[in-house]
Nucleic acid binder design. Structure first.
Lengths: 238, 238
DNA sequence: CGCATGATTGAGTCTTTTCAATCGATGTGG
DNA sequence: CCACATCGATTGAAAAGACTCAATCATGCG
């Protein structure tokens, strides 16, 4: 992927925050510093696989910091079409969409056993939280720009390669392997997020495998050739 | 367009704010109330057609409220591909992308003679501004969701119809005609924004014209059948 | 008035989707 | 513990949609 696009869409969380304490979970995002945020000050909530943290339309009361696990957010049209608008892992913040209108606009669903910290909106009024919250929201806006770029300008191979590189970077930032990981989401969810059919996602994985870029076994991914994968992003037709 | 999608992507600015005073320009967006924001407290800046308000990479110093005119924001990859990520008219806020990283991530360019109010970031620290700023940013996140939905799930006709309906609603909210307006941007810019080639945009306009939904004459648009246009959004293949 | 930019339209190509069949893994109940 | 049911993934073939290339047509500006 080109540097410009990487700068935009592949935001890297700069420090470890896996199954660590909340302060560490939240710090990499600048949500708060140690003085403001500690383990005891927020209610935690377990979310089981398949359960939603909140639905679109639900009244907005708080934002959530993912402590552990994996979420997707999605918006649904009543004609049945829906789109996954993001995947969220430990240390990331969800629920910001609700601030503007007083209601959430997306569903957020756990893709595996997960735990979040509930951060009541009221708490965000505290002066020192403000700047951090702005940064989190702004970063989200930048991330969205990257997704728009992906959806608007990239072909299937580029989208899938970008997706894998992005996931890899987020995993490594949390202390996991950059080259080997489990996808928590289905092909259909990936396709929805990338604006592709699930078949196209599957075919693209297979093609990458044939080319020796990755080893794919169902949900288990091993990146064999990062360079090649990155090249696939900027080289539409190889 | 379906109601759900409309709720997401077609945010309506609730009151008039065309060539009006700044307080009115900003109010509909909840950026500030009358006590906090008056004509004298912000520097204005004229931006000529084709000039940029700021470039991607420029250090972030302030956000801007569009007083009059029309802007596009776009992100560029060094391989030449770029994408228009939004169009902005009077009363809307640009520059929020810079808060997170300290630099702007998109170019913002005037598509016609325009004027903005410069709102230094420091001013946003004022307590009463905070909530409003959150709302503006959150609304932007929701808008982005709508664009993602558009780019991810809609076919060409639906995208163009959605685009026209959205523009119409934004114009009418500013006291202009809902059914007749001038496009400030080229087919290429529309295409970039919608993830389509300029030819596809042009062809879709022509098809809508053949179907009696709109009258298109270069940049002049007249919507003849709003219902039909909205139907084109939810009815992929009519 | 002529040039330059933007818009339209046509023809052919390519990507991606859709429909459909098969395969594999996982988990449940007998 | 195994058979079966279910869900997800893979793969193929055909079709559709959008893109590219290219020519022509407007419009506006110098």
């Amino acid at each position: 992927m080109s540097a410009a696009a990487a700068k935009i869409s592949l935001a890297v969380v700069p420090s470890h925050c896996g199954a660590c304490k909340l302060r560490e979970v939240c710090l990499p995002h600048g949500l708060a510093d140690r003085d403001l945020l500690d383990d005891l000050s927020y209610t935690r909530k377990r979310v089981h696989r398949g359960d939603t943290l909140f639905h679109a339309g639900a009244p907005f009361e708080s934002i959530y910091a993912v402590r552990s696990g994996f979420f997707k957010s999605s918006v649904v049209l009543e004609d049945g079409r829906d789109q996954v608008t993001g995947f969220h892992m430990a240390g990331e913040i969800v629920g910001l969409d609700g601030i503007g209108g007083g209601n959430h606009t997306a569903d957020v669903t756990a893709l595996e056993e997960s735990e979040v910290c509930i951060i009541p909106y009221a708490r965000l009024d505290e002066p020192h939280m403000q700047h951090q919250l702005h940064k989190v929201m702004s970063r989200e806006l930048v991330r969205d720009q990257g997704v728009m770029l992906l959806l608007g300008t990239m072909r299937a191979e580029e989208r899938v390669a970008t997706f894998l590189i992005n996931l890899s970077q987020r995993f490594v930032a949390r202390g996991f392997s950059a080259s080997e990981f489990h996808l928590r989401m289905t092909r259909e969810e990936i396709g929805s997020y990338l604006g592709l059919s699930l078949e196209t996602v599957s075919r693209t994985f297979s093609r990458f495998q044939d080319e020796g870029l990755v080893a794919v076994q169902q949900k288990h991914i091993r990146i064999l050739d990062v360079k090649g994968l990155k090249a696939a992003v900027s080289q539409p037709n190889e």
